[in-house]
Simulated assay, not measured.
Amino acid sequence: MAPGFSLSEARIGTVEGGESGVLVWKSDQLVAVLTEIDEEAYSTKGKWFLEIGFGLLSGDHRNFDTIEEAVHWVGRQLFPVETADDRTAAAAS
C-alpha cells in the first residue's frame, strides 16, 4: 500500500443492499471511496472502481484490477513525485 494511506471497510449505498467498499484515508483526510465490482457479465468481478475522489481526484472515475493498484494510483495523483526532467522543464519555462 502507498505510504501514509489507510483503508476502512464500508458498505457503499450505490445499489440496494449496498456494495463492498473502502474509504481511502491519507493521514486523517478522506481522499477517495472505492467499491468492489461484482459484475461477472463484464468480466470485472473482483476489480475495484473509484466511486468518488476528493480534491484533485474530483470527477475522475476508473477501474483497477486490485485494491493496491487503486491506492497507489490515488497516491500518485494526489502526491506526484517530481522527477529531474520535471525540474529541468520548469526551470526552462
Rank of each mutant, 00 (worst) to 15 (best):
M1P: 07
M1H: 10
A2I: 03
P3S: 05
P3Q: 08
P3N: 08
P3R: 12
G4Q: 10
G4C: 13
G4A: 13
F5W: 09
F5D: 02
F5I: 04
F5G: 02
S6G: 06
S6D: 07
L7C: 06
L7V: 12
L7R: 04
S8P: 00
E9C: 05
I12A: 01
I12R: 03
G13Q: 12
V15E: 11
E16S: 15
E16H: 11
G17F: 06
G17I: 08
G18P: 07
G18E: 13
G18R: 10
G18K: 11
E19R: 08
E19H: 03
S20V: 03
G21V: 08
V22C: 15
V22M: 15
L23E: 12
L23G: 05
L23K: 13
L23A: 12
L23W: 14
V24G: 15
W25P: 06
W25T: 05
K26G: 08
S27N: 13
S27W: 08
S27A: 14
L30I: 14
L30A: 10
L30V: 15
V31A: 11
V31L: 13
V31K: 05
A32T: 02
A32C: 10
A32K: 00
V33W: 02
V33E: 14
V33T: 15
L34E: 14
L34W: 14
L34F: 15
L34I: 15
E36G: 08
E39R: 13
E40T: 05
E40I: 04
A41I: 11
Y42H: 06
Y42S: 07
T44N: 03
T44H: 01
W48L: 07
F49C: 01
L50R: 00
E51S: 01
E51Y: 02
E51F: 03
E51A: 02
I52Y: 01
I52C: 01
I52T: 01
G53Q: 01
G55P: 00
G55I: 11
L56W: 01
L56G: 00
L57Q: 04
L57G: 12
L57A: 12
L57S: 11
S58F: 00
S58E: 04
G59D: 00
G59R: 03
D60L: 03
D60W: 00
D60M: 03
H61R: 06
H61N: 02
R62T: 11
R62F: 03
R62L: 03
R62S: 00
F64M: 04
F64A: 04
D65C: 04
T66I: 02
T66A: 10
T66V: 02
T66R: 01
E69F: 12
E69G: 14
A70F: 15
A70C: 10
H72K: 08
W73M: 04
V74G: 02
R76Y: 11
L78K: 05
L78W: 03
F79P: 00
F79N: 07
F79A: 10
P80H: 05
V81F: 10
E82Q: 13
E82H: 09
T83G: 07
T83I: 06
A84H: 07
D85W: 01
D85F: 06
D85A: 15
D86F: 08
R87H: 09
T88N: 09
T88P: 00
A89Q: 07
A90L: 12
A90P: 00
A90M: 09
A90K: 10
A91Y: 00
A92E: 08
A92L: 09
A92G: 09
S93P: 03
